[in-house]
Amino acid sequence: MRAFVITTIVCFLIYLLLTTGSGSDFLGLWSNIELIFGILLSLIVGFIARTVFVKNNYRLLNPVRWILFLGYLIGPFFFSLAKANLDVAYRVITGKINPGIVKISPGLTTDLGITMLANSITLTPGTLTVDIDEDTNDLYIHWINVDKKALEKKPIDCSYICGSFPQWVRRIVE
């Protein structure tokens, strides 16, 4: 039941976003009939998608986490993204690579958390998530420029590859 309500509300918010500017009845942005149809369709989608969308994880209902997420997106994430691209640009132009596939254990437990971390890693400097260990949540990462220092200690410390991302993700999701 709770899953159904949450999914419906999220779908309704997406629907509202998509139909912004449809009229002036509701908050000056939406028309009434659009709202009615939005609610109906959201109920349908909520009924169908409730079991896949919500996996018994209600931590994200906390608005603080949303603000944190936005901060993460604009702050460290975007910075790393820019750095990553300059890095790739450098490598494209010079052609210097020193690749390898390494394993890290970020220590995250939830699916959403590991997904967010994996996506962040893929989009940030010189790294690409290749595989994941389904049981232990270890990530196998293709590293375009393997740091010799990092290989000395096994398993490799996360901070070489993804900086402070695991802490951020833990704060947001877990």
Binding site: Y15, L18, T19, S42, A49, K55, N119
Partner: peptide, 24 residues
Amino acid sequence: TKIVKTTANILFPFTMIFGLYVIV
């Protein structure tokens, strides 16, 4: 993998509501 499944879970309602939006 877990990553794909989680993304699919998030994208599925979005795709669905967008499809219904296109229909209506």
